[in-house]
C-alpha cells in the first residue's frame, strides 16, 4: 500500500486511479459505519483519515503529477477526503450522542456513601487549643516563649520567690530528678519561663508561654501527672492590673466569642503581689443557668492565677524593682490547666 514508488509513472499512479480512490472511500465509510464506539471510531479515523491512510498517501502522490493531471487528481482526492471526514464527523456525533444517552448512565456510581479511602488525620485538641491561644496573644503583639520541661529547681521555685521553706513550695507535688540534690525538677508550672525570659530578653517584655507541666498526681478522672498551661508575662512602664484584666478579657473573647469576660478574685501566689485568681464567664450558660454542668451553676470557670510580678522575682532576674517602683513593673498570669490524653480516640 505504501512504501517507495519503485515503478514510477508520472501519469499512471495506481493510488490515484478513480477505482482505487473510490475503494479507499468505500473502505473508509464501511469502517466508520462499523465503528461502534468512540474508541473504535478513533481507530478508524487513524486508519482511513490519518497521516498514513490510503487517501493521505494518494494525496502525496499528486505533487509528482504533471501539472495537467494535478487538478483532476487533486479534485478527486479532495472530494474523497471530504466524504470520509464528513462521515467521521457524523459518526462522531452519533457515537457521542449514544455515549451521553447510554454509556454515562451505565458507568454511573453511587457516591452517597463516604469513600473513607484515606481519612484525613487530626491535630490533638490540646495542641490546637494552645496554638489558638498563642495566636490570640501574638495578635495582641506578644511573643511566644518556651522553656524546658526538666528544669532547674532554682528557675522553678527560687527565681519565682518560692522560698525553700514556704508552704507553697511543699504544696506543688513536685517530681524531683534523681539524685534528689541534683537541683533539677520536672517543672510544676510554666512560670520558670518568666524568669528565663526576663533574664534573656530584658524589658519591656510581653511573652506568652504555652507548655507541658508536671505534678505527682496519679491519673484519675480529675487529675493527671502531665497537664498544659499557658502563661503570660508583661513587664513595661505604666502597666496596671487594669491592663491585666483587659488582656484576659481580650483572650477570653478570642477563645470563646463576644461577651465572655474575665473576673478577678483575691488570691495568693509567691511570684505575684497583688495576686488574683482569674475566672472566665461560663461560655455555655453565660451565668444564666444555675443548673449548668459546665460551671456548676456558678456562671464562672476557673482559669488560673495572676497578679503583679513580685519584686523578688524581678530581683532574681536582675530587674531593679526600686527603679520600677515609680511605674509598676509587670504582671503575669497562668492557666488554664488542661489534661493530656494519651489516645487520639478519646480526646478530652
Amino acid at each position: 500500500m505504501s512504501g517507495p514508488n519503485t515503478s514510477y509513472d508520472p501519469v499512471e499512479v495506481a493510488a490515484l486511479a478513480p477505482e482505487a480512490v473510490d475503494q479507499a472511500v468505500a473502505d473508509a465509510l464501511a469502517a466508520i459505519e462499523a465503528a461502534d464506539s468512540l474508541d473504535a471510531l478513533k481507530a478508524a479515523r487513524l486508519a482511513h483519515a490519518g497521516e498514513r491512510s490510503p487517501l493521505a498517501l494518494a494525496n502525496r502522490e499528486i505533487g509528482a503529477l504533471p501539472p495537467s493531471a494535478k487538478a483532476e487528481a487533486g479534485k478527486r482526492v479532495g472530494q474523497a477526503r471530504g466524504r470520509v471526514n464528513a462521515a467521521l464527523t457524523a459518526r462522531q456525533a452519533e457515537l457521542e450522542a449514544e455515549r451521553d444517552e447510554r454509556i454515562l448512565v451505565e458507568e454511573a456510581m453511587d457516591l452517597t456513601a463516604v469513600p473513607a479511602r484515606r481519612p484525613l488525620g487530626r491535630r490533638h485538641v490540646l495542641t490546637v487549643t494552645a496554638e489558638r491561644m498563642a495566636d490570640a496573644m501574638v495578635g495582641m503583639g506578644w511573643e511566644i516563649a518556651e522553656g524546658p520541661g526538666v528544669e532547674a529547681e532554682w528557675f522553678n521555685f527560687d527565681a519565682l520567690n518560692f522560698d525553700k521553706d514556704h508552704p507553697a513550695r511543699q504544696m506543688q507535688d513536685t517530681f524531683f530528678v534523681d539524685p534528689a540534690d541534683a537541683g533539677l525538677v520536672l517543672r510544676t508550672h510554666t512560670s520558670p519561663v518568666q524568669a528565663r525570659s526576663l533574664l534573656e530578653r530584658g524589658v519591656p517584655l510581653y511573652v506568652a508561654v504555652p507548655g507541658k507541666t508536671f505534678r505527682t498526681d496519679e491519673l484519675d478522672a480529675t487529675h493527671t501527672p502531665v497537664f498544659h498551661q499557658l502563661e503570660g508575662l508583661a513587664v513595661d512602664e505604666g502597666l496596671t492590673m487594669a491592663h491585666l484584666k483587659g488582656t484576659l478579657d481580650r483572650l477570653a473573647e478570642a477563645m470563646f466569642g463576644p461577651g465572655i469576660v474575665s473576673r478577678l478574685r483575691p488570691a495568693y501566689f509567691p511570684f505575684t503581689e497583688p495576686s488574683a485568681e482569674m475566672d472566665f464567664r461560663c461560655f455555655v450558660c453565660r451565668g444564666e443557668d444555675t443548673g449548668c454542668r459546665t460551671c456548676g451553676g456558678t456562671g464562672w470557670i476557673e482559669w488560673g492565677g495572676c497578679g503583679m510580678v513580685n519584686h523578688n522575682v524581678l530581683r532574681a532576674c536582675g530587674v531593679d524593682p526600686e527603679r520600677y517602683q515609680a511605674s509598676p513593673s509587670g504582671w503575669a498570669w497562668s492557666g488554664p490547666r488542661c489534661s493530656a490524653t494519651a489516645s487520639p480516640t478519646c480526646g478530652s
Binding site: V138, M140, G141, W142, E143, P204, Y206, A234, D236, L239, T240, A242, H243, K245, G246, T247, D249, R250, V261, S262
Partner: peptide, 10 residues
C-alpha cells in the same frame, strides 16, 4: 477596669 495594653509589638 478592663484596659487592653499596647504591647511593644512582637
Amino acid at each position: 477596669p478592663s484596659v487592653v495594653p499596647r504591647a511593644t509589638g512582637g
